[in-house]
Protein backbone atom coordinates (compact mmCIF):
# COMPACT_ATOMS: atom_id res chain seq x y z
CA UNK A 1 0.00 0.00 0.00
CA UNK A 2 2.77 2.41 0.88
CA UNK A 3 4.47 1.54 -2.43
CA UNK A 4 1.24 2.31 -4.29
CA UNK A 5 0.95 5.70 -2.57
CA UNK A 6 4.60 6.43 -3.26
CA UNK A 7 4.26 5.79 -6.99
CA UNK A 8 1.06 7.82 -7.14
CA UNK A 9 2.27 10.81 -5.16
CA UNK A 10 5.66 11.24 -6.85
CA UNK A 11 3.90 12.69 -9.92
CA UNK A 12 2.21 15.33 -7.82
CA UNK A 13 5.32 17.08 -6.58
CA UNK A 14 8.66 15.27 -6.59
CA UNK A 15 8.59 14.35 -10.31
CA UNK A 16 5.96 16.87 -11.45
CA UNK A 17 6.11 16.26 -15.22
CA UNK A 18 6.39 19.70 -16.89
CA UNK A 19 8.04 21.63 -14.06
CA UNK A 20 10.39 19.07 -12.47
CA UNK A 21 11.06 16.55 -15.24
CA UNK A 22 10.71 19.21 -17.99
CA UNK A 23 8.81 16.81 -20.25
CA UNK A 24 6.07 17.41 -22.79
CA UNK A 25 6.62 21.13 -23.21
CA UNK A 26 4.62 21.68 -26.43
CA UNK A 27 1.11 21.28 -25.02
CA UNK A 28 2.22 23.05 -21.83
CA UNK A 29 3.05 26.15 -23.85
CA UNK A 30 0.39 25.87 -26.53
CA UNK A 31 -2.89 25.14 -24.80
CA UNK A 32 -2.51 27.22 -21.63
CA UNK A 33 -4.02 30.45 -22.97
CA UNK A 34 -6.89 29.90 -20.59
CA UNK A 35 -7.30 27.72 -17.50
CA UNK A 36 -10.19 25.87 -19.18
CA UNK A 37 -8.07 24.70 -22.07
CA UNK A 38 -5.27 23.65 -19.72
CA UNK A 39 -7.69 21.57 -17.66
CA UNK A 40 -9.23 19.96 -20.77
CA UNK A 41 -5.88 19.01 -22.18
CA UNK A 42 -4.81 17.67 -18.78
CA UNK A 43 -7.87 15.43 -18.55
CA UNK A 44 -7.19 14.01 -22.03
CA UNK A 45 -3.60 13.28 -20.99
CA UNK A 46 -4.70 11.61 -17.72
CA UNK A 47 -6.90 9.24 -19.74
CA UNK A 48 -4.25 8.38 -22.32
CA UNK A 49 -1.41 8.09 -19.80
CA UNK A 50 -3.26 5.89 -17.31
CA UNK A 51 -4.66 3.61 -20.00
CA UNK A 52 -1.38 3.35 -21.88
CA UNK A 53 0.53 2.58 -18.67
CA UNK A 54 -2.02 -0.10 -17.84
CA UNK A 55 -1.96 -1.73 -21.29
CA UNK A 56 1.81 -1.57 -21.64
CA UNK A 57 2.24 -3.11 -18.21
CA UNK A 58 -0.25 -5.88 -19.08
CA UNK A 59 1.57 -6.87 -22.27
CA UNK A 60 5.08 -6.15 -21.01
CA UNK A 61 6.06 -9.82 -20.96
CA UNK A 62 4.81 -10.43 -24.50
CA UNK A 63 6.67 -7.58 -26.22
CA UNK A 64 10.09 -8.43 -27.69
CA UNK A 65 12.63 -5.88 -26.46
CA UNK A 66 13.67 -4.81 -29.93
CA UNK A 67 10.27 -3.62 -31.08
CA UNK A 68 9.00 -2.35 -27.74
CA UNK A 69 9.00 1.35 -28.71
CA UNK A 70 6.93 0.62 -31.82
CA UNK A 71 4.47 -1.28 -29.63
CA UNK A 72 4.25 1.62 -27.15
CA UNK A 73 3.57 4.00 -30.04
CA UNK A 74 0.75 1.81 -31.37
CA UNK A 75 -0.84 1.58 -27.92
CA UNK A 76 -0.58 5.36 -27.38
CA UNK A 77 -1.83 6.17 -30.88
CA UNK A 78 -4.90 3.92 -30.53
CA UNK A 79 -5.80 5.62 -27.25
CA UNK A 80 -5.32 9.06 -28.78
CA UNK A 81 -7.70 8.14 -31.61
CA UNK A 82 -10.24 7.12 -28.93
CA UNK A 83 -9.80 10.49 -27.19
CA UNK A 84 -10.18 12.33 -30.50
CA UNK A 85 -13.45 10.55 -31.30
CA UNK A 86 -14.78 11.00 -27.75
CA UNK A 87 -13.95 14.70 -27.77
CA UNK A 88 -15.58 15.19 -31.17
CA UNK A 89 -18.72 13.57 -29.79
CA UNK A 90 -18.95 15.12 -26.33
CA UNK A 91 -16.66 18.18 -26.14
CA UNK A 92 -16.55 19.59 -29.63
CA UNK A 93 -15.81 23.27 -28.68
CA UNK A 94 -12.83 22.12 -26.60
CA UNK A 95 -11.67 19.88 -29.45
CA UNK A 96 -11.63 22.90 -31.78
CA UNK A 97 -9.80 25.01 -29.19
CA UNK A 98 -7.05 22.43 -28.66
CA UNK A 99 -6.82 21.87 -32.42
CA UNK A 100 -3.73 20.03 -33.63
CA UNK A 101 -2.55 19.35 -30.07
CA UNK A 102 -5.10 16.57 -29.52
CA UNK A 103 -3.54 14.23 -32.13
CA UNK A 104 -0.12 15.38 -30.94
CA UNK A 105 -0.70 13.80 -27.50
CA UNK A 106 0.69 10.67 -29.15
CA UNK A 107 4.16 12.22 -29.42
CA UNK A 108 4.03 13.75 -25.95
CA UNK A 109 7.26 12.57 -24.30
CA UNK A 110 5.45 11.83 -21.04
CA UNK A 111 3.41 8.99 -22.55
CA UNK A 112 6.36 7.16 -24.10
CA UNK A 113 8.71 8.17 -21.31
CA UNK A 114 6.51 6.59 -18.62
CA UNK A 115 5.83 3.51 -20.75
CA UNK A 116 9.56 2.98 -21.26
CA UNK A 117 10.81 4.00 -17.82
CA UNK A 118 8.07 2.62 -15.60
CA UNK A 119 5.15 0.68 -17.07
CA UNK A 120 7.29 -1.81 -19.00
CA UNK A 121 9.07 -2.85 -15.80
CA UNK A 122 6.33 -2.83 -13.15
CA UNK A 123 3.07 -4.70 -12.36
CA UNK A 124 -0.26 -3.30 -13.53
CA UNK A 125 -1.46 -1.73 -10.26
CA UNK A 126 1.76 0.26 -9.81
CA UNK A 127 1.75 1.35 -13.46
CA UNK A 128 -1.82 2.64 -13.13
CA UNK A 129 -0.92 4.53 -9.94
CA UNK A 130 2.10 6.03 -11.68
CA UNK A 131 0.05 7.06 -14.73
CA UNK A 132 -2.71 8.59 -12.63
CA UNK A 133 -0.27 10.53 -10.45
CA UNK A 134 1.75 11.81 -13.37
CA UNK A 135 -1.43 12.71 -15.27
CA UNK A 136 -2.90 14.60 -12.34
CA UNK A 137 0.41 16.40 -11.80
CA UNK A 138 0.44 17.35 -15.47
CA UNK A 139 -3.16 18.61 -15.25
CA UNK A 140 -2.46 20.69 -12.15
CA UNK A 141 0.60 22.24 -13.81
CA UNK A 142 -1.30 23.09 -17.00
CA UNK A 143 -4.23 24.55 -15.09
CA UNK A 144 -1.85 26.57 -12.91
CA UNK A 145 0.02 28.03 -15.88
CA UNK A 146 -3.28 28.58 -17.72
CA UNK A 147 -4.73 30.43 -14.73
CA UNK A 148 -1.75 32.78 -14.50
CA UNK A 149 -1.82 33.55 -18.22
CA UNK A 150 -5.60 33.96 -18.34
CA UNK A 151 -5.64 36.16 -15.23
CA UNK A 152 -3.10 38.62 -16.58
CA UNK A 153 -3.93 38.25 -20.26
CA UNK A 154 -7.72 38.58 -20.11
CA UNK A 155 -8.40 39.47 -16.46
CA UNK A 156 -10.58 36.39 -16.09
CA UNK A 157 -10.32 32.97 -14.45
CA UNK A 158 -12.19 29.98 -15.97
CA UNK A 159 -14.11 32.61 -17.95
CA UNK A 160 -15.25 34.64 -14.90
CA UNK A 161 -14.19 38.28 -14.64
CA UNK A 162 -11.77 38.66 -11.71
CA UNK A 163 -9.97 41.91 -12.27
CA UNK A 164 -11.81 45.24 -11.81
CA UNK A 165 -12.43 47.93 -14.44
CA UNK A 166 -9.01 49.47 -13.79
CA UNK A 167 -7.27 46.44 -15.23
CA UNK A 168 -5.57 46.67 -18.61
CA UNK A 169 -5.15 43.18 -20.13
CA UNK A 170 -1.51 42.29 -20.76
CA UNK A 171 -1.89 40.76 -24.23
CA UNK A 172 1.77 39.63 -24.10
CA UNK A 173 0.77 36.90 -21.64
CA UNK A 174 -1.65 35.08 -23.93
CA UNK A 175 0.60 35.20 -26.98
CA UNK A 176 3.54 32.88 -27.70
CA UNK A 177 6.27 35.01 -26.01
CA UNK A 178 4.30 35.15 -22.76
CA UNK A 179 4.03 31.36 -22.72
CA UNK A 180 7.81 30.89 -22.98
CA UNK A 181 8.66 33.58 -20.42
CA UNK A 182 6.01 32.39 -17.94
CA UNK A 183 7.18 28.78 -18.10
CA UNK A 184 10.82 29.91 -17.79
CA UNK A 185 10.04 31.93 -14.67
CA UNK A 186 8.04 29.08 -13.11
CA UNK A 187 10.95 26.66 -13.70
CA UNK A 188 13.33 29.23 -12.18
CA UNK A 189 10.98 29.53 -9.21
CA UNK A 190 10.96 25.75 -8.75
CA UNK A 191 14.76 25.69 -8.84
CA UNK A 192 14.97 28.57 -6.36
CA UNK A 193 12.66 26.68 -4.00
CA UNK A 194 14.78 23.52 -4.27
CA UNK A 195 17.92 25.52 -3.60
CA UNK A 196 16.34 27.30 -0.65
CA UNK A 197 15.43 23.91 0.88
CA UNK A 198 18.93 22.61 0.23
CA UNK A 199 20.42 25.71 1.84
CA UNK A 200 18.39 25.23 5.00
CA UNK A 201 19.82 21.71 5.16
CA UNK A 202 23.31 23.15 4.75
CA UNK A 203 23.82 21.83 1.20
CA UNK A 204 25.24 23.68 -1.77
CA UNK A 205 22.98 25.26 -4.40
CA UNK A 206 22.61 23.21 -7.59
CA UNK A 207 21.53 23.90 -11.14
CA UNK A 208 17.99 22.88 -11.98
CA UNK A 209 17.04 19.69 -13.81
CA UNK A 210 18.65 19.65 -17.22
CA UNK A 211 16.26 19.04 -20.02
CA UNK A 212 17.71 16.47 -22.30
CA UNK A 213 16.07 14.26 -24.86
CA UNK A 214 17.20 11.12 -23.06
CA UNK A 215 14.33 11.48 -20.60
CA UNK A 216 11.81 10.85 -23.35
CA UNK A 217 13.01 7.31 -23.90
CA UNK A 218 13.27 7.61 -27.66
CA UNK A 219 17.01 7.13 -27.73
CA UNK A 220 16.23 3.51 -27.02
CA UNK A 221 14.81 3.12 -30.52
CA UNK A 222 18.31 3.28 -31.93
CA UNK A 223 19.27 -0.21 -33.08
CA UNK A 224 21.85 -1.69 -30.77
CA UNK A 225 20.91 0.49 -27.80
Amino acid sequence: MSRLWKEFSKGLWKDLPPFKLVLGLCPVLAVTKTADNGLGMGLAVIFVLTMSNMLVSMIRKLIPTKVRIACFIVVAASLVVCVELLMQAYAYPLYLQLGIFVPLIVVNCIILGRAEAFASKNPVYLAVADGLGMGIGFTISLTFLGSIRELFGYGTLFGTQIMGDWFQPVTFMVEAPGAFVCLGLILAGMNALTNWQRKSKGLEAIEGPVHDCKTCGMCATKPGA
Binding site: P177, F180, V181, G184, A188, N191, E207, G208, V210
Partner: peptide, 17 residues
Protein backbone atom coordinates in the same frame (compact mmCIF):
# COMPACT_ATOMS: atom_id res chain seq x y z
CA UNK B 1 22.08 29.68 -10.27
CA UNK B 2 18.34 29.00 -10.27
CA UNK B 3 17.96 30.54 -13.73
CA UNK B 4 20.78 28.54 -15.30
CA UNK B 5 19.98 26.02 -18.04
CA UNK B 6 16.39 25.39 -19.08
CA UNK B 7 14.67 28.40 -17.40
CA UNK B 8 17.04 30.85 -19.08
CA UNK B 9 16.69 29.05 -22.43
CA UNK B 10 12.91 29.36 -22.20
CA UNK B 11 13.05 33.06 -21.34
CA UNK B 12 15.44 33.58 -24.27
CA UNK B 13 13.02 31.69 -26.51
CA UNK B 14 10.31 34.04 -25.27
CA UNK B 15 12.36 37.09 -26.26
CA UNK B 16 13.10 35.54 -29.67
CA UNK B 17 9.43 34.80 -30.09
Amino acid sequence: VSLKGTPLALILAGLMS
